[in-house]
Design a protein around this nucleic acid. Structure first.
Lengths: 133, 133, 133, 133
DNA sequence: GTGGTCTAGACCACG
DNA sequence: GTGGTCTAGACCACC
């Protein structure tokens, strides 16, 4: 029934609503969720995950504001057609930020540049092949 | 006097005390700070960075708890002798986890594998040359 | 004390938190609020406006996600340095949407194209002169 | 049979019934629909647009309340004879208000006055030539 | 049934 | 003191 299974970890440092946001975002980015697909309703998802509906609503609201999903009054929340919302600079800024985190962690863990490069390459080989625009 | 310059960035999601912790950890990992080196005192650092002394104290406390530094009563805080706390498996696990975060973000931002690889390479070229370990 | 006066209308079709968001956005766009300026704290603004702190928090949160403001842990919320977050296409999309609303309204009110053009021109003459980038 | 094509756009913030109301109003304002013209029946329109008949009924009801259309029992819904309800001042007030919304949005999106003017002009060139009134 | 908004009140992390 | 998250429960608009 549910389009895909969300898994949330309570007691994590990342808040519940963020976990939902990220999992949905990834699902749309990888194609597990496609434009037009409906998300589990706020109330149902709240029941399934044993959390408050407001928390789900907050997550869905954020996804809607980002343009990842769109809510249709009285019908539910659906995956929006893909579009580029962020500017080139903003996307770059966020990528660099993510790189900060990675390189810092790798450095503290005493990995060499070569090791990090290889580990990343391995990941990127599994990268979902872009099928569309 | 100050062994190296700490830089805190305002408006980041990472709290100030964490920024301090991480920069010190990176400095010890890269060899900018070596075992026995003294850290700037809590008060002075607070003045320099224009932040609350409590914040600095909290950061130093965390570093001490992690075993990165040790405070000698009345003398100050010093970099502890390096010791590898983590197992090979644990280090690997953490690296992979950090890669998860990066690749996920990059995917959602619609970057290509090639772009991510290049951006990382650029970072790694600036990678501080390990001096010891 | 407060950097500028917010005015909210209860019972409007536009929700309270949106009114806050828009007024702050406009204030930053017109220069009434400049980068680094602090906003009234969540609790204080809630008191002033006689609304629930959560409502203010929601508004501030949205502004933060948009990059208009940034919150500094334990200090408050501040106007962020200006940056272009949205892509060219997204900005265009939103402008066209706003034009939809205007032209439709003008049409139903039986104004001629010429009248609408003149009315807009009058507004644009008061447009704040861009001072920076 | 259908006097003109209605188009509802999904994922808009404006609810479906409002979209119908507004498109009919625009059609009467531009002369595409003239006094006495019949509207597509509730059922048929609901089928055509793949929406709930209640939604269509609600839209027609609102239009009737506004005096734009009138329903003749058993015959259907027809465009009412045109009458100017609003005073000159009221019309002006509403236009200015609509301009507020547009200019505010454009300002926040960082468009220049020139860009806004051009975008509007492009719209107005497509403006339907008034036939009567 | 659906999502959206608001209130009330709690608890936590940060400075 | 600051903001951030979560819960509980209410009311509304839309379909």
């Amino acid at each position: 029934m549910a389009p895909f299974r969300l898994e949330i970890v309570t007691g994590s440092t990342t808040p519940i609503y963020r976990q939902i946001v990220e999992q949905v975002r990834v699902a749309t980015a990888t194609g597990k969720l496609k434009a037009g697909d409906g998300l589990t309703s706020v109330r149902r998802l709240a029941e399934e995950l044993l959390i408050n509906p407001n928390t789900v609503a907050k997550a869905y609201g954020e996804l809607a504001r980002e343009g990842v999903v769109e809510s249709r009054q009285g019908l539910g929340v659906f995956v929006a057609p893909k579009r580029r919302v962020l500017s080139r600079e903003e996307r770059r800024r966020r990528l660099e930020q993510a790189l900060d985190v990675l390189t810092q962690e790798a450095l503290c863990l005493d990995f060499t540049a070569q090791q990090v490069r290889q580990a990343l390459d391995k990941r990127l080989r599994k990268w979902p092949s872009k099928e569309t625009a």
